[in-house]
């Protein structure tokens, strides 16, 4: 258990370093960086590489935003396997509902509960 936490720490940290290099060296905005990382995640799953990555790194692979691209592709592929081309369209959100639904639900709750504060960081 300790080992898998350490692996999650190291792998997750390294994925974030890639993101930081995209910020600082490639001078991409956060929106560009995150979009690119999602696309990378989805392409990796196309080659069947992301699931083994999750098996190895656990949360180090599922928590970074790349895993969102992976689960979208994964859902589409699972359905495509069952239903052919129609599955490509219908399977997309099969696996990955939680990130988006949680963000929407907690977003609305936060809007009810909080107000922004301009305190300096």
């Amino acid at each position: 258990m300790i080992v898998s936490v350490i692996i999650a720490f190291i792998v997750g940290g390294l994925v974030c370093v890639i993101g930081q290099l995209l910020f600082d060296v490639a001078k991409l905005t956060p929106a560009h960086t995150l979009s690119l990382m999602v696309v990378i995640g989805s392409v990796l799953d196309g080659f069947g590489l992301y699931e083994p990555f999750i098996d190895f790194a656990g949360a180090g692979a599922t928590i970074p935003i790349t895993s969102f691209g992976n689960s979208l592709t994964h859902g589409a592929l699972q359905e495509a396997e069952k239903h052919g081309f129609i599955g490509v369209l219908t399977g997309m959100f099969e696996v990955t509902s939680s990130g988006i639904s949680a963000a929407i639900i907690f977003g609305v709750i936060a809007a009810i509960l909080f107000k922004s504060k301009g305190k300096v960081s």
Partner: peptide, 18 residues
Amino acid sequence: QHNAVERQFRYPIEYGAQ
């Protein structure tokens, strides 16, 4: 006014951009 300007030109006040 800080918040009014930032939210228009940059990001929401609570967004964690570096």
